[in-house]
């Protein structure tokens, strides 16, 4: 690990002041940042400790939504009575991720910003455009079993590894930030992540020193919610494919559908076309197949991840069937 200057922020204002100086990183739970610093994939000169900021509350909002502090640990969020009641897809996604120990440390803000688990990104002996812009992407012709099938570019085919962020995308979450100049921003999760294009090292729209302070969930959506994660082990493994789904059936027709996917793309993936293929249709195989077709129309495998295309199709259909079983 490269050495660094350390300071602890007492207020969000303190934190962004510190964060505004180049090559500084916030540390929240540290479960991703320290992992990467040990391997010298991240080499910040300064670390601002945000773990003691008073951003650890989950509060009901006037409009019926929920405001979650960026420092709320994943474990506490998953077990929060209001999340269990109104946003079970979020509890389920959190509980499907990492381990009990990691969830106790991992923060809501940090989880959105965890970096890819691409093997080449982790191996500093080989090139990687995300780690060293312009050096190349060995994953395209190499081992790419865990890599993306949607939203890839010539420069990078890595996936975003989070489970939590997939549920957050299905729930139309808004991220609230504080910038070093004191401005606050509200960023829809649909605009938060960037496609890799030819700059895969830039992953979100956050500016230097910008701090996520809160996350806001709109009022509970109508319908049933589910999170299904397919992985190599029954527990403690990243997703090969995951589906967060919220589906409402009214009068024998699908009235509302929100679908987000993990393991498929460089960001938690959302497909309006797949949702449109369901709305107004009877909750039957034909509509589910059409949704899978729409989702996967542009899917592209790179060899060892080709299996993700049929796997995604089957997982989506199974989730939709489970969610609508007694409504049909």
């Amino acid at each position: 690990m490269k050495t660094f200057d350390y300071s602890r922020a007492d207020t969000p204002q303190d934190a962004v002041k510190g964060g505004a100086v180049g090559n500084t990183r916030f540390i929240a739970g540290g479960t991703n940042l320290l992992d990467l610093m040990k391997l010298q994939i991240e080499t910040p000169e300064r670390i601002v400790d945000i773990s003691r900021l008073a951003l650890n509350e989950v509060e009901a909002m006037d409009d019926g939504g929920l405001r979650i502090g960026a420092m709320v640990p994943n474990a506490d969020l998953a077990a929060h009575p209001q999340v269990i009641k109104a946003y079970p897809v979020l509890s389920r996604a959190l509980l499907a991720g990492a381990s009990g120990q990691l969830r106790n440390k991992a923060s809501t803000g940090g989880n959105f910003l965890q970096r890819t688990r691409c093997y080449y990104f982790y191996d500093t002996a080989v090139p990687c455009n995300k780690r060293e812009p312009g050096s190349g992407c060995p994953a395209k012709e190499g081992f790419n079993r865990i890599h993306a099938i949607l939203g890839t570019s010539d420069a990078c085919i890595a996936t975003h590894p989070s489970d939590m962020a997939v549920a957050m995308r299905a729930l139309d979450t808004t991220l609230v930030t504080l910038k070093p100049d004191g401005d606050r921003r509200r960023i829809s999760i649909h605009e938060f992540y960037r496609l890799p294009g030819d700059t895969p090292h830039i992953e979100t729209v956050l500016e230097e020193g910008e701090l996520i302070t809160h996350v806001e969930l709109p009022p509970a959506p109508a319908g049933k919610q589910a999170y299904r994660k397919v992985r190599d082990r029954a527990s403690y493994a990243f997703a090969l494919v995951s589906v967060a789904a919220i589906v409402a059936v009214d009068d024998g027709k699908i009235a509302n559908a929100s679908l987000a996917f993990g393991g498929l793309g460089p960001m938690p993936w959302r497909s309006e076309a797949a949702e449109a293929a369901l709305i107004g249709k009877a909750p039957e195989r034909e509509a589910f197949e059409a949704a899978a077709d729409a989702l996967l129309a542009d899917a592209k495998g790179f060899g060892s991840n080709d299996f993700k295309i049929p796997l995604t199709r089957r997982t989506l259909i199974a989730v939709l069937r489970d969610l609508t079983e007694d409504a049909a």
């Binding site: 350390y6 602890r8 540390i27 739970g29 540290g30 479960t31 320290l34 992992d35 040990k38 400790d49 773990s51 474990a75 381990s99 009990g100 120990q101 990691l102 106790n104 440390k105």
Partner: peptide, 26 residues
Amino acid sequence: DHGQCGACTVLVNGRRINSCLTLAVM
């Protein structure tokens, strides 16, 4: 030393965590 095995688990304020993935100074 990377949060993958749990051998370093300790309790901090009663909660279990991986002591390899956090800084002493924190």
